[in-house]
Nucleic acid binder design. Structure first.
Lengths: 138, 138
DNA sequence: CTACGAAGTAACTAAAATGGTTACAACGGT
DNA sequence: ACCGTTGTAACCATTTTAGTTACTTCGTAG
């Protein structure tokens, strides 16, 4: 990898804006605050919509949260923007040599550890709510 | 992102082989167990060497661990193969609009959370040693 | 009902990371 | 001196990312 996509941080930024200024939150306005192209925002808004986090109003413009800010965690956002394939942060090399004791077992042994490590990260993300973040924007 | 590079799992596989079969661990042998190209292994071995985890013998061939298997954690390996740029798992979008209260504070507020989340993952990786993995290859 | 601003989306691009591959130089012991 | 091995450089196809242009669809105000 290199790093986790900025889609995640942009999504958090976007949701924060919607929570703070429920009005004027058009794609262009958000793009102006994030400092990127409006299409990038619309794509991310589409993911947030599909995840049931926001309601976007086509035609009229703007968006609103579908959940209370203290019911939206960073983990919800993380998952919404699909940062990893099939929710697997780690990737394991495929088709090791099964005639080798290490090759035969590496996948299963590692999977346990990596799942736990990923879980630790996600649990930490789940502890922070959008409401907590918004409090610090004042 | 998509996912964390298989360099990590291949590195763990490689170190396990060296620990289990201190002899015959040439790049070609390891590549045969991992099922990839020998150059891929040599590149990863170079990173493990630079991290002070292994000693590779040019000319004669083979490698050996420079630390006891119970002194090598998954975090050591994770860091050795440079999976993320500057050890930052998350990336935050740059140059948000500082005239917006959200844009002005998003970076600092998020950085705290993401650092903690990354730290949770790393602490979990640090809890597993190579020795523990090897025990399960028997 | 028309116009206009906004969302939805397809298509294209440049840049970067990944994993594999070929090729060749350097090393070291038989 | 030979031969297997390591150390690298160079190249490639594939994929992801983020940005951009362009066009359609939507919904309300005039």
């Amino acid at each position: 990898m290199k790093q986790i996509s900025t889609r995640f941080s942009i999504a958090v930024h976007t949701l924060s804006l919607i929570a703070v200024s429920p009005n004027d939150c058009t794609g262009d306005y958000i793009a102006g605050s994030v400092n990127t192209n409006p299409v990038v925002i619309r794509r991310i808004m589409g993911m947030l919509k599909k995840a049931g986090l926001v309601d976007v109003r086509p035609g009229v413009g703007g968006a609103s949260l579908l959940k209370d800010p203290n019911q939206i965690t960073l983990l919800d956002v993380y998952r919404a923007v699909n940062v990893t394939e099939e929710n697997q942060l780690f990737r394991i090399h495929e088709n090791p040599n099964i005639r080798c004791p290490v090759g035969r077992n590496i996948e299963q042994v590692l999977q346990t550890e990596l799942r736990d490590a990923q879980s630790a990260l996600e649990q930490r993300l789940a502890q922070t709510t959008l409401a907590q973040l918004i409090d610090r924007f004042k």
